[in-house]
């Protein structure tokens, strides 16, 4: 009992700080979402769930909600598919490994907004690097207008998202790989296991907790990620590349509908809360194991 009380006492200050940082804004946002709010944040009449009803009646919002799921799944899945092989290679011993690791980590050092703006130039239809590169290789005859339509813009945005998420994910996976003892591979090789079997039966199971963490953390980051889509298309043309954050930004700051914007952010908070709970469960299960 005494020990427990001490523990709680020690946790209390940081808990209070966290509560102040998280719960107070949350209360404010709930308040905004339930009121008719003017563009400068002044509360007018209590409006109940009217803001939420307006949102769910807006086809652009529903499309953005769905697109956010595609975006998150696409970026997180793609990142993982690239990062696992990259981490395996970087974990191996070869000449110039240090340099290779630095190169893979480099995109991390560039701010996300800058990355996105550079890509916006690269994807420009008439003077972009990508088109001139593809033309030089003889892969295309005419220029492709990458950002003119969602059908080309959105996949490119997902690719940019993947590129930006690889360094972080690779770091987590490299940490995981370094904890796998080499003796296991030696023993497996003696038993006659090939490279694929070693990967399937040794690497992957031991890497699983790290992959889980990478998935959950990336999901949280990517779900909330604003710069890539904003800098390349601002969610356009005609809202066809909007995700929830860009929808929220436009509603709040361009159109001055702070009540609706607050409602969107609550919905996003709800979705992310579920993911955070999963994260906590994963972390605990790993601790128990």
């Amino acid at each position: 009992m005494g020990r427990r009380a001490t523990a709680y006492c020690l946790i209390l200050p940081s808990f209070l700080l966290a509560a102040f940082i998280v719960l107070w804004p949350l209360k404010e946002i709930i308040n905004l979402a339930l009121h008719d709010v003017n563009r400068f944040g002044l509360l007018r009449a209590f409006s109940g769930l009217a803001n939420f009803r307006t949102l769910f009646a807006d086809p652009d919002f529903l499309a953005a909600l769905w697109r956010t799921l595609v975006w998150t799944a696409g970026v997180v899945g793609g990142t993982l598919a690239v990062s696992v092989p990259v981490a395996l290679m970087l974990n191996g011993d070869f000449y110039g490994r240090g340099a290779a690791r630095v190169i893979v980590m480099l995109p991390w050092a560039v701010s996300l907004t800058m990355t996105a703006i550079v890509w916006r130039w690269a994807l420009s239809g008439e003077s972009g690097m990508l088109n001139s590169g593809l033309r030089g290789l003889g892969l295309i005859d005419g220029n492709i207008q990458w950002l003119a339509e969602a059908s080309t813009a959105f996949p490119m945005q997902i690719l940019i998202g993947i590129e930006a998420s690889i360094p972080f994910t690779t770091t987590i996976l490299l940490g995981g790989l370094s904890s796998v003892p080499d003796e296991l591979y030696d023993a497996a090789a003696i038993e006659g296991a090939g490279a694929w079997d070693q990967f399937r039966f040794i690497t992957l199971p031991l890497l699983r907790p790290f992959i889980n963490i990478a998935v959950v953390l990336n999901t949280i980051y990517v779900f909330n990620s604003f710069p890539i889509i904003w800098a390349t298309t601002q969610g356009g043309p005609a809202n066809s590349t909007d995700i929830l954050v860009t929808y929220l930004y436009k509603a709040g700051f361009r159109l001055g509908k702070l009540g609706e914007a607050a409602a969107v952010s609550l919905i996003m908070f709800g979705v992310l809360l579920v993911f955070t709970l999963i994260y906590v469960r994963l972390a605990m299960r790993e601790e128990a194991a």
Partner: peptide, 21 residues
């Protein structure tokens, strides 16, 4: 017009003009 007009902001179109395109 230039192709893909929905990918050109005001600055982008001005740049095309400056480039003589």
């Amino acid at each position: 017009t230039q192709p893909g007009v929905t990918s050109y902001s005001r600055e982008d179109v001005q740049n095309l003009f400056k480039q003589g395109k």
